[in-house]
C-alpha cells in the first residue's frame, strides 16, 4: 500500500511509473498528492474531475492533525467554565426551536426564584432585544446578544456578555440560546449542561429528527402541556422517543402559562446550587 495516499500501489502501475492516477470516492474523483524521491523539475500530470493541468513537481508532506474544528471556541468555553466555577455559579444553556417557550419559562422561573436565588440571564437572538425586554424587571440582570446572521451563540460572545451580566452574588446563570434545534448543540459556551425544550405543538417525533441536541442534553423539558387536549399528541410516544436518543435524560413536563409542573422544575434548579 502506498504510504502517502493509501492506494494499492503494488497494483497501480500508473502510480509507480507514470505519476498519474486517480481515485474514485463515491462518485467523484480526486487526486492524491505524492512524495517523490526523483529529481525535481519534472513535469507532473494530475486530473481533477473536470479539468486537467500540468504543473511543476514539488514535495508534499502528510501532517496528522487530530484537532477539533471548534477548538478555538472550546478554548474560550473552557475559560468561561473556569470563571463560572471559581465564582460558584451554576450555568444552564437552554436550547430549542424558536417559539417553544424558552423565554416564557425563564419569565416564570425568574419570578419564582426572585428574592431566593440570585439569577442572571444572557439571551441570544439574531436580531432585536424583544426577549431581554420581557425578562427584565424580574430581579435578574439580563444581557441580550444579537448574533446577526449567526444561528447559534458562541463562547466568545458569551465571554463578553459574562463581564457585564454577572453580579457579585450571582448563583444561577441561564443562557437562552438562539432558537434553533440543530446548530447551538455544537457550540460549547462553558455551561455546566444543556437543557433542551420541546413544546407539545412541535410534535412528539422531534427527538428522533434532531437527535444531536436531545442526545447531549442533561434534561428535556416538554413545554405547553396545557395545549395537549387540543393536539393529536401522544406524550407517551414523545417520552419514548426522548429516552430512545438519551436513555438517562431527566424529563420535565410543564406549562409556563398554567404553571402546571413548574414547581418540580424550580425544585430541581434549587438542588443544583
Amino acid at each position: 500500500m502506498c504510504k502517502n495516499c493509501g492506494c494499492d500501489a503494488s497494483k497501480d502501475k500508473m502510480h509507480q511509473n507514470a505519476h498519474e492516477h486517480r481515485h474514485e470516492h463515491g462518485g467523484h474523483y480526486h487526486v492524491h498528492e505524492h512524495h517523490h524521491e526523483h529529481e525535481s523539475g519534472h513535469e507532473h500530470h494530475h486530473e481533477h474531475g473536470e479539468h486537467q493541468h500540468d504543473h511543476q513537481h514539488s514535495e508534499t508532506t502528510h501532517v496528522e492533525m487530530e484537532m477539533n474544528i471548534l477548538s478555538e471556541n472550546d478554548r474560550i468555553a473552557a475559560e468561561n467554565r473556569a470563571l463560572l466555577k471559581s465564582r460558584g455559579i451554576v450555568t444552564v444553556n437552554l436550547i430549542s426551536s424558536p417559539g417553544s417557550g424558552k423565554t416564557a419559562l425563564l419569565e416564570k422561573t425568574l419570578d419564582m426564584l426572585k428574592g431566593d436565588v440570585p439569577c442572571a440571564v444572557i439571551v441570544g437572538d439574531q436580531r432585536s432585544d424583544e426577549d431581554a425586554k420581557r425578562l427584565r424587571g424580574r430581579g435578574a440582570p439580563v444581557t441580550q446578544i444579537e448574533t446577526d446572521d449567526s444561528c447559534h451563540l458562541n463562547a466568545g460572545q458569551v465571554a463578553l456578555a459574562l463581564e457585564k451580566t454577572l453580579q457579585p452574588d450571582t448563583k444561577l446563570l441561564f443562557i437562552e440560546n438562539v432558537g434553533n434545534l440543530v446548530c447551538p448543540a455544537a457550540f460549547d459556551l462553558g455551561e455546566d449542561f444543556k437543557i433542551a425544550l420541546l413544546s407539545a405543538p412541535e410534535g412528539e417525533d422531534k427527538p428522533l429528527k434532531y437527535p444531536s441536541l436531545f442526545n447531549t442534553a442533561r434534561a428535556v423539558i416538554i413545554t405547553k402541556i396545557d395545549l395537549c387536549p387540543y393536539l393529536d399528541w401522544d406524550i407517551e410516544k414523545c417520552r419514548r422517543y426522548i429516552r430512545g436518543v438519551n436513555p438517562d435524560v431527566l424529563l420535565f413536563e410543564l406549562s409556563s402559562r398554567s404553571e402546571k409542573g413548574v414547581n418540580s422544575w424550580i425544585s430541581y434548579l434549587k438542588t443544583l446550587l
Binding site: S58, T60, H62, V63, M65, E66, N68, I69, G244, P247
Partner: peptide, 22 residues
C-alpha cells in the same frame, strides 16, 4: 439494552493535511 454510551458519531475534527514545502 438502551443503556449504551456513544463511542463515535459526534466527531468534528481536522484529521490531517497535505502540505507542500517550497
Amino acid at each position: 439494552s438502551t443503556h449504551v454510551k456513544i463511542c463515535s458519531g459526534r466527531e468534528l475534527k481536522i484529521k490531517s493535511m497535505e502540505i507542500e514545502e517550497a
